[in-house]
Write a protein that binds this DNA or RNA. Structure first.
Lengths: 208, 208
DNA sequence: ACCTGAACACCGTTCAAGT
DNA sequence: ACCTGAACACCGTTCAAGT
C-alpha cells in the first residue's frame, strides 16, 4: 500500500542507545536542510537518508512512513510554541484583562514571525491529514491558559469567560497565520503588529 | 523531472469546442468525487481520469501537471467566496461601521462553514506552494471592499482606515479558518458564531 | 539493537499514433 | 482539435541479510 492509514502516525520506537539518538537527530536535521535547500518537491526519503548519512531502511525503523516523520517534527514545533506561550503568560499573570489580551497578541507574534519558512512548509505538508487533532490540542492548551489569565484579574467579570478565551485564541492565532500565509508586505506586517493588540484589547474590554 | 517549476501553474489551453468543455467539466467533477470518496491519498491522475471517463493524456492537454489542476480548482473556489462577499457587502453599504464589521463576520461564516470538506482538503494540498499569491489577491480584494464600506459610514473617522480594514479582514478570515481547521466541536462553532461578530464590532468601535 | 540496500508496487508525465 | 495508453523515470516502503 502506498498511503497507510492516517491513524498510525506515531514513531515506531524510541531510541535505546546513544548511537540511535544521534541517528534520529541526524534525520531531523537532514529533513529541514533538504526542505530548505532543495524545496518541498525534492524532499524524498532517499535524499533525506543520504544527507543524514544513513540508509533508507534506518528511517523506517523510527517512523512507519514519511508522513509520520514530518508529523513528528510539526508536533515538536507545536510544543515549542506552546512552551513559549506558557513562559509569556508568566509575565502577564495578575495584570488586568485588557493588558493580558494585548500581551498575548504580541507574544504570539514574537513566537511566530521568526518561525522558519521550513516549518511553515512542514505544516502545509501534513495539513493533508491528521494535523487537526494536534493543532486542536495545542489550541485547547492555549485557550485554557488564557482563561486562567483572565480569571486572575480580580476586576474582570465575564458572562462566559471560556468563550472569550477561546475567541481570543482564535483571533490571535488565526489573524497571525492568515497574514503570514499570504506572503505579507512589510507594511501589512506592521499593520498586524499595531492593530492586532488593539483589537484584542477592545474585544476584552467589550466582553467584560 | 518529477516536480515542475511552481511558476507554471496555469491551464495549458482553454477549451475550443463543446466537447472539450464537457471534458474539462468532467475532470473537475471527478476530482472532487475521488477526493470525497477515496481520500487524498488515493487522488491520483489515473483514478481521476478513469472516473471522468477520459484517458490520462487528456488531462495533460488542459493542465501541465496534477498540481495545476488542483490549483485551478482552488482559485475558482476563491473567486466564488469573493463574489459571495461582494454580494453581502451590498446589503451593508451605508450602515454604521460597527454593523458593517458585525455583518461581514457573519457573511464570512455563512460562506465558509458549509464549504465542502473537499475544498478545505484542496487548499491544504496546494498550500505546498503557490497558494500565497492567489490568497493574497483574494484577501486584498476583500480588504479594499471593507475599506470602502467603512468609508460609506458618514459618522466614522478612522486614523488609518485601510489598516483597520486590513485587520478586520485578517481577524475574520483568520479566526474562521483557525477554528474550522481544528475540527471544532459544535460548542466551539457556536462560540465562534457568537463572539466573532462581537469582537469585530468592539474593534471598530475602539478604532474610530 | 541497529543498520543496509536491492527489489517491488505505484505514481506522475510524455509522446507517437490515432479520430 | 481532441483523444488514447504504453512506456519511462522516480518515489515510498519492505525485508532478508548483515554488524
Amino acid at each position: 500500500m502506498n498511503r497507510p492509514a492516517p491513524s498510525l502516525l506515531k514513531p515506531r520506537k524510541a531510541p535505546q542507545q546513544a548511537r540511535s539518538t544521534a541517528t534520529l537527530e541526524a534525520i531531523h536535521t537532514a529533513t529541514i536542510q533538504v526542505l530548505l535547500r532543495e524545496g518541498v518537491g525534492r524532499l524524498t526519503t532517499a535524499r533525506v537518508a543520504e544527507r543524514a548519512g544513513v540508509s533508507i531502511g534506518t528511517m523506517y525503523q523510527y517512523y512507519p512512513h514519511k508522513q509520520a516523520l514530518l508529523f513528528a517534527m510539526v508536533e515538536q514545533q507545536l510544543e515549542t510554541v506552546v512552551g513559549f506561550m506558557l513562559a509569556a503568560a508568566e509575565q502577564l499573570r495578575g495584570k488586568d484583562a485588557e493588558t493580558v489580551a494585548e500581551g498575548l497578541a504580541l507574544a504570539w507574534l514574537d513566537a511566530k514571525t521568526p518561525e522558519s519558512e521550513a516549518f511553515r512548509t512542514l505544516y502545509s505538508l501534513v495539513a493533508e491529514f491528521d494535523l487537526a487533532p494536534g493543532m486542536g490540542r495545542a489550541f485547547e492548551q492555549i485557550s485554557v491558559l488564557i482563561s486562567d489569565l483572565l480569571a486572575a484579574d480580580p476586576g474582570a467579570h465575564f458572562a462566559d469567560r471560556d468563550a472569550v478565551a477561546f475567541m481570543l485564541a482564535s483571533l490571535i492565532g488565526g489573524a497571525v497565520r492568515m497574514v503570514l500565509d499570504t506572503a505579507p508586505t512589510p507594511e501589512n506586517l506592521a499593520r498586524l503588529r499595531q492593530e492586532l493588540p488593539r483589537a484584542c484589547r477592545a474585544y476584552v474590554a467589550a466582553a467584560r
